[in-house]
Design a protein around this nucleic acid. Sequence first.
RNA 1: GGACGCGUAGCUCAGCGGGAGAGCACUACGUUGACAUCGUAGGGGUCGCUGGUUCGAUCCCAGCCGCGUCCACCA
Length: 943
Amino acid sequence: MLEKTFDPKSAEPRLYEAWEKSGLFSPEAVLARNPDAEPFTVVIPPPNVTGSLHIGHALNNTLQDVLTRFERMRGKAALWVPGTDHAGIATQMVVERQLAAEGNISRRDMGREAFVERVWRWKAESAGTIQQQLRRLGASCDWSRERFTLDEGLSAAVRKVFVRLYKDGLIYRDKRLVNWDPHFQTAISDLEVEQKDVDGAYWHFAYPLEDGSGEIVVATTRPETMLGDTAVAVHPDDERYADLVGRFVVLPIAGRRIPIVADSYADPEKGSGAVKITPAHDFNDFQVGKRHNLPLVNMFDPQARLLDRFEVVDALVPATGDAPSVEIAAPQTEYRAAEVMGERADTRGSTEVVERAGFGDLPEDLRGLDRFAARKAVVAQMEALGFLRGVEKTRHAVPHGDRSGVPIEPYLTDQWYVRADILAQPAIAAVEQERTVFEPRNWAKTYFEWMRNIEPWCVSRQLWWGHRIPAWYDPEGFTYVEETEEEARAAARARHGRDIELAQDEDVLDTWFSSGLWPFSTMGWPEDTEDLRRFYPTSTLVTAPDIIFFWVARMMMMGLHFAGDIPFDRVFITALVRDEKGQKMSKSKGNVIDPLVLMDQYGTDALRFTLVAMSSGGRDIKLSEQRIAGYRNFGTKLWNAARFCQMNECRIVESFDPGAMTLPLNRWIRGETVNTAAAVTRALEDCAFDAAAEALYRFIWNNFCDWWLELAKPVLNGADEAAKAETRATAAWVIDQALKLLHPVSPYLTEELWAQMAAFSGVRRETMLIAAPWPELPAEWVDGAAAEEMDWLVRLVTEVRSIRSEMNVPPSAKPVLTLVGADAAARQRLEARRDLILTLARLADVTEADAPPPGAAQFVIGRATGAIGIAEFIDVAAERARLAKEIAGHSSDAERTRRKLDNPDFVGRAPEAVVEENREKLAAAEAARAKLEGALARLEAVS
RNA sequence: GGACGCGUAGCUCAGCGGGAGAGCACUACGUUGACAUCGUAGGGGUCGCUGGUUCGAUCCCAGCCGCGUCCACCA
């Protein structure tokens, strides 16, 4: 016999272990039975290898598991590939912090090799965490296929892709402005930059004209960059400055002569209408500089980063004060780098392109300052020199590194870029043609928006943890991009006719570069593997909205380019999980909900059911514990229903044919089961997870427990052995179907009941994973007549209960119900269901009469009037009020419907079925009102 | 500035062209051997506002108000 409640704590580990041991998470199990089984593939969004499960993981992995289990039960060769990501910056950051805490050691103190070794050790230590937590969640992924982005195989794929992109001209090295994260001392991509509003100011500076005939005022939020100004721009149509264009100002402090140029970038409406141009430190200014062939003055010393320990101090002005070069590199050279985008750079790279540019008479006291100190110093000097024309406080957006949280710096460096604009074309087309669809659909727009305006993707990072870029340089400045050092050497030998010293690029690749290959690299690409042939393209990708650009877009581009096909048929974008107040969860706010705690408290199934039930398209999830508790109760409800069935000897009868049921009661629940199975199937096919959960909840709780079980009780306690046998078998059959339908969402509880029911029934059964085929039930099993009959019964019982409650009839009282004016059908139903009605409505008897007895509370049921003989309880005033209210309800119904039907336009234009429906409604409302008015009249007569 | 989404019962959310729904919370009654992690019954909403389309609008369209997310930008 089942315990009183399901105990997740003891059952979950036991069940998971059994599943894993069975080997049935691997599609081979299905393929062994059916070699032609259709594949269904999901690849996990690989979590950070050293991470742990947060609520977002819980959500998307639950949904992936729901889909995988569902398709596996349907007989598909379902494969869910698990794995983890090396997460370059994030992981390196954690380890660097550990080192700092341990002994104030920096990675640079350790050296590259030792540091990377250390990160691998940390990975080995903590890698198990997330895997265990996914198991805890019930994830049915194929652990035998688990991958890691820094695996040998995946690394080989990365090198292959890099080399091929290079040889296709789709990857190139270039010197241009990048988003430089001064904290991590690395370039980051546009996507890793977030704008934050901060308090700042506009400083208005006057730049004197060269000839002393006046000045021009510019405003800036970044005074420290003025030292790098190489022009002042005004709008070509701005008459105020028309005669100044082509003349020169003298840049204060630096003492450099810079031109006034006309460029439409200058907005006459803003500030003075004149804008300072700092091409080496501002993305817009870079473009202006390019148009006017302005020199770039890079004020950052790239070497400065070597001075850092844990807190980075970046130098604003050259720390190498010994040789500040006055000469400025020729503009045509400066901009060459930007112009060769996409050009093969296997000859002289662009490393030579930018000369060190400086400015001779920079005061000693400005050198070596970090940028914040430099700002103050520059402002102070400008003020002292009399060039400060005002300060205006303002709040403005400043780009910050998403990981470091410090303001990023546009910085002129050599980096590797991917020509995303070319790769994006097929990826855009694939979604336009709906070869890949987004679910919910609207996300496609977000995807298009970004893809159609895509910028070059900076993929090099000045980190140590990651895939080292497979590029080698010789001392003469030639570049060799090859998969191995041997090949690079061979290429160098071929070029120079001798062995030559090579140095590998120090940088590693953006983490998302390897993640972008995930759907095919995990399948063994570039080898032509069986997995690749069978399981690629994958079926559904389940992921969060915030990584559509980071990840989904890159997989689309890489998949189409390298694996020759879309990476997935469908992308399901999950909701964002927020706290119950609707706030985004964050460590700093302290409102993070730990899914593990929730699983401890309520069981995994309850958490899963909640996440599924709240996953409706286009809305964030506000997670509340109350809701989880409610769904935990739902599991208990089903558990107890099964327990009741055991108490009543309801066993699985393998020879039982549900098609041969005779009792309307059973035929009714059979129909409900069919309808529910269809609804759940369709919902899961459409990723309408909330609809699936709702259908299951209603069916199990409202239909099965609230009504069918109650209706079955008299049968199970009765003397009709045949009816009893059928009802027992029906109970077991319905529970079986319910368990199967619920299993993808709540795997633990269902698996446990499945086994217990089998044991109790003396039936041998394997785990549900593939031995519980998904219910595909014939539509003929829906019996309309039985449904109508049960519906009538439910209405009758509900009416009686409602009146009893309103009239305060104690449960112990068993009145007599008299039906007046019952037709043949009602009479027949009444006779057939007499026992049920008596039990459920707590009645002594049901009779028929021509008129209701005095002192009865009355209601309308179909064409008949029901009268409950509760003279001793009836409160005439209360009953009068009750009847009046009922009458009012029917009256207003009738009134509204009549108005509709009196409208010739409605009758003329609405579909006949709708008109007819309204006619029936009117008739029913009026009949009910007439009966109740009669009842009210009788009440008044006797009182 | 652009894109997308959301405003429905106290709360959380379904529904999205023809009778306003669920869960929770609330109120009353209840322990009749599946379940108090429960049962029965009940109260509670001019479906953000204003127009339009339609025989008919919570549902479609437009505008407005409020909220949120993303992208771009703000010398």
